[in-house]
Amino acid sequence: MATADVPAISRSRATRASLRLAVLMFMADPQWLIPSMIAPVIFGVVAFELFRGAGPYFLTYAILGAGMMSMWGQTLYGSGWAIGQDREFGTLEPTVQSPTPYVYVVLGRVLWNVVSGLMGGGIVYLVVLASAGSPPAVPDPVGFVILFLFVMLTLASVGILFSAAWVYTRYSGFIQNVGEFAFYVGTGCMFPIVLLPFWTNPIGLFFPPTWALDALRYLSIPGYVGFSWGFWPDILGAVVTTLVYVAIAGTIFKRVELHVLAKGNLSDY
């Protein structure tokens, strides 16, 4: 039965397997209905009421604010939590012990969280649409959709780093809980960061979604004045920071793996 030759490991297949597992776990667990289905409805209603009467583009503000709030939790928080769940189940050890580099497993989980975040965004859109009775006026709908997906990508890059923290230590949940809403406000998800105190702006610039969201607002709200010099500088900032995050994640995962193997805390939860 034992084989001397071993099959080649396909990283894309491992990522697909991890994505499939995440979907199966989602379907099997009704508690996910709360963040993925019910929370976006609440965010949508709150944002609609909050921005009502705030100018002709208040619907776009409401959709972006509530949509991002929903996707933020799903994509970013969910990515870290998925790894925390592996710790809880005791499946982190056999997964790390497999020949697939762990970062490709994490990528699968993050991809699923992106998809589920998009579903949340879709629900928010429908809620705001139902509340307003008419769709928001978006000057460039195709560009909006493309940029919306780009925002998700930038969120996913932060999600991968959060996941690394969960692999590193079981106490990541504490950091994540404390930081979640601070990051959320700091990156301008609900309100543009120019509305925040000036000293908070440089912090927001470290996060790829801050740039991508500002670009999205430039595209979808005529007359919008964001924090940067315009649409393309925002895109450039988002691309550069996302690439930096991905590069850090690629480097950090190898180091994190070595660290946890040295500490021997993979089975702690």
């Binding site: 397997a17 991890s18 499946t91 020949p99 089975s267």
Partner: peptide, 22 residues
């Protein structure tokens, strides 16, 4: 511990089969 309890045995094994490149 060490298994994905909310899914069935076959799906547990499929996941690890993919990670091992079977």
């Amino acid at each position: 511990r060490g298994l994905y309890n909310r899914i069935n045995a076959r799906d547990n094994l499929r996941y690890f089969a993919d990670l091992y490149g079977i």
